[in-house]
């Protein structure tokens, strides 16, 4: 019988990530891809199309205009899919809390699976978050 756990187990062996990064979010998270922290040793791969992705990483402050594009990306991803919000600006607007053009609650726009706080989050925090997904799948009931 195909259970949710079986399906998820296959996916979390290798989480393919599509990045939606604005502004400093991009430059701060790029070291995760590089050789020092190297996300590929955990099976995390940055892909070039949302149709191949399992997870959507959102970083940097978001505007209503960029959020529309993020929603389009999210719609194109195959299920099951996860959204990770990286950093304070993404989650709450951060230091731009009183700006007229930043998104204040990202959960109004997308179902966020995990919030990773930090400005920016450390690469270790991102790996920890993805590890939590793996643990979550392990703990799913096999039925």
């Amino acid at each position: 019988m195909i259970t949710k756990k079986k399906v998820m187990k296959k996916i979390v062996k290798s989480v393919w990530v599509f990045n939606w990064f604005n502004s400093c979010g991009f430059t701060e998270i790029v070291p995760v891809v590089g050789s020092r922290w190297d996300m590929e040793r955990f099976g995390l791969v940055a892909v070039n199309s949302p149709r191949k992705a399992d997870a959507l990483f959102i970083a940097g402050y978001q505007t209503p205009k960029s959020m529309k594009r993020a929603q389009q990306i999210y719609e194109q991803m195959p299920s099951p899919k996860f959204v990770f919000a990286l950093g304070c600006c993404t989650m709450t607007g951060g230091m731009y809390w009183d700006s007229y053009n930043t998104v204040k609650r990202i959960d109004d726009y997308l179902p966020v699976f995990m919030y990773i706080p930090g400005c920016p989050p450390r690469p270790e925090a991102i790996f920890d978050a993805v590890h939590k997904v793996v643990v979550h799948v392990d703990e799913l009931p096999d039925e």
Binding site: P64, K65, W97, D98, S99, Y100, N101, K104
Partner: peptide
């Protein structure tokens, strides 16, 4: 150009208090 779906006044005019606007509209 940047402000898609913007319904408020032009934001860079000096008599537009955007902190008040944000508190009223977004929080």
């Amino acid at each position: 150009l940047f402000l898609e779906d913007w319904e408020g006044p032009p934001p860079f005019l000096k008599d537009f208090d955007w902190r008040e606007y944000v508190k009223k509209e977004m929080y």
